[in-house]
Design a binder for these strands. Structure first.
Lengths: 344, 344
DNA sequence: CTGAAAGCGCTAACAT
DNA sequence: ATGTTAGCGCTTTCAG
């Protein structure tokens, strides 16, 4: 069988209490006995039994993350931040991939299961209203990532700020007629990005033409997809209205579709049409997309920090932090001389 | 505090043993008392304490997966299969993202930590030789996914079969001069795909021209990247040799780069150059790539099944299953009339 | 400073 | 059929 503190205690001629004390670095142990215990533990290659610890400590040192398994991999990068941070803190991460609301609820249920996890992270999906009271009352540690609810801690991207920056960049480049290719309005980020886009236009004395805005009606991934961008732009071009000299696109993945549609029509990027998108996922680099970059890894790190704080202080006031995306200028906006990678 | 079997026992006027028995569906309980216990448990909203169970059962019902966090997301799809299957079996999944060998070793160490997990899944990375003995001796359940070691169970893609099918498809389409864009030879799949490509050519009486083979020397992700494909094809075109009428590309992601390089040179796909790639990740669909499809979700499912079998029978002979990829014909090979999506 | 003992919540062997 | 008891491995009083 595997080695326990009893084995160490026997071998080191001490009580198990002492062994536990040195293993946990708690005070009041002679450096002499401490040494002895440590030596024996190392010699025996002792490994603490996580569950026994969890049971005795009433704390599992593990978190769960409920993530959408279908998305554009934005969350994967955030998850990486979560996971690395957790590792340095000695926590483990259980993941639950959810593809629909039902599964989210099921996993939320599990999270309530006493003792299993110390807290849960919910990614990019709405927290179901019917669980609000329960989580709130029981003070189950919960941190929302890329989603929001006033009663729980959350970490988000400042869509308003990002859309504003993107639009202003296009305006600064001299564009007067700017369009937008948006995802489905079912998605909160899509709504927020649209609103700020319009406001920025107005604030700069530019007309807001509904004819220049295309909104996805696709179900899949709320229209944050390449096909959605492609079809959106194709439909737009068929409207026969004058083509704006620039477009703000609500995600990189859509922008890639937009690029294809534009090229099919013989329009060059950025010479004929400038593009600024949103997210800065790995692919954006490949397509030389100017885009609003989100500090995904950092968001993951912060999510963990918030969670730890919440676990340690269940009654602290709810916090919500918004990360302001930063503009990454590549070729698609035309600020640089380069052509867009795949359109050369 | 939360409700325990003691609470249920008291309320239902039975012993905790009985409560445990009905909760575990073990035999020998009057249906009358069973009813009573169940009713009380439900009324009290009893939730078993996972760690206490794990401690008593000496089984945690959780697995860990060590995954590369940087790859082309092939593993994400496999992971989804793993996760869903696990959920239906009542298992939990702890993930460890590793970006280098050191981290793999660290997580492997953790896996040995008694009691924490019942087994571990290692994805797409080599199992370090120095751990072989230890894992083998201790019979720590281990299943390798998309990687191989003779001493442990593994689930892989049959690269030889896939490369053969891909090459034969091109030959069947009438191509006589076929090139290959490969990833780094550091990667076993790349080596295997190359070998079968050559063999298939020979077997069909076609010449194997080294000048028609481009091999990536990129470190990052072993050359399985868009940039790698792009640069590879650009370099090839600069060699000035006659351009083959078809290419087998070792991954979808590289093929996307190849497409860009070809188009830059004014070569159309599939009219001037036909392409067949490998993987069938989400993007392949978007680019209308004819490719070798791997049943990723199924591989995940099977990995879990193998793991369960291994846990239940630690001494069973080691198994290794190879999934034969199947050809998915889209536009890039020219078998269909359609043009390649982004090149229209 | 340290040993002994009492749990943590549950399972399983042992009685009855 | 069901109650009782002894652990599972560890933490944490409580004495001394």
């Amino acid at each position: 069988m595997s080695v326990t503190i009893y084995d160490i205690a026997r071998e080191a001629n001490v009580g198990i209490g002492t062994v536990s004390r040195v293993l946990n670095n708690s005070a009041n142990v002679t450096s002499e006995t401490r040494e002895r215990v440590i030596t024996v533990a190392r010699k025996l290659n002792y490994q603490p039994h996580a569950f026994a610890q969890a049971l005795a400590r009433k704390r599992s040192n593990t978190l769960s993350a409920i993530i959408p398994f279908f998305t554009n991999y934005f969350f994967i990068e955030v998850l990486q931040g979560v996971q690395e941070t957790l590792t340095t803190l000695g926590y483990d991460l259980i993941i639950h991939g959810a593809n629909n609301k039902l599964q989210v609820e099921e996993y939320l249920q599990r999270s309530m299961r006493k003792g299993r996890v110390d807290g849960t992270l919910l990614f990019s999906m709405e927290f179901p209203e019917q669980y609000v009271e329960e989580f709130y009352q029981k003070k189950t540690p919960l941190v929302l990532v890329d989603t929001f609810h006033p009663k729980f801690d959350s970490i988000r991207v400042d869509n308003a700020s990002g859309a504003t920056t993107a639009t202003e960049h296009l305006i600064a480049l001299g564009h007067k007629n700017i369009g937008m290719v948006n995802a489905s309005l079912k998605s909160a980020p899509a709504r927020e990005r649209l609103a700020s886009f319009k406001q920025t236009l107005e604030r700069n004395g530019l007309p807001v033409l509904e004819a220049n805005i295309v909104t996805s009606t696709e179900e899949k991934n709320d229209g944050f997809s390449r096909e959605s961008g492609f079809r959106g732009m194709v439909e737009f071009l068929e409207r026969g209205v004058p083509v704006p000299t620039a477009f703000f696109v609500s995600s990189d993945i859509q922008a890639i579709g937009v690029l294809a549609a534009l090229r099919e029509r013989g329009l060059r990027v950025p010479e004929d049409v400038a593009i600024v998108s949103f997210d800065d996922v790995e692919l954006a680099k490949n397509f030389d997309l100017t885009t609003m970059s989100q500090p995904m890894f950092k968001m993951g790190e912060l999510a963990v920090k918030k969670m730890i704080e919440r676990i340690e202080n269940p009654n602290a006031p709810v916090t919500s932090v918004n990360f302001k995306p930063s503009l990454v200028v590549r070729a698609s906006c035309g600020a640089n001389k380069k052509y867009v990678f795949h359109e050369q």
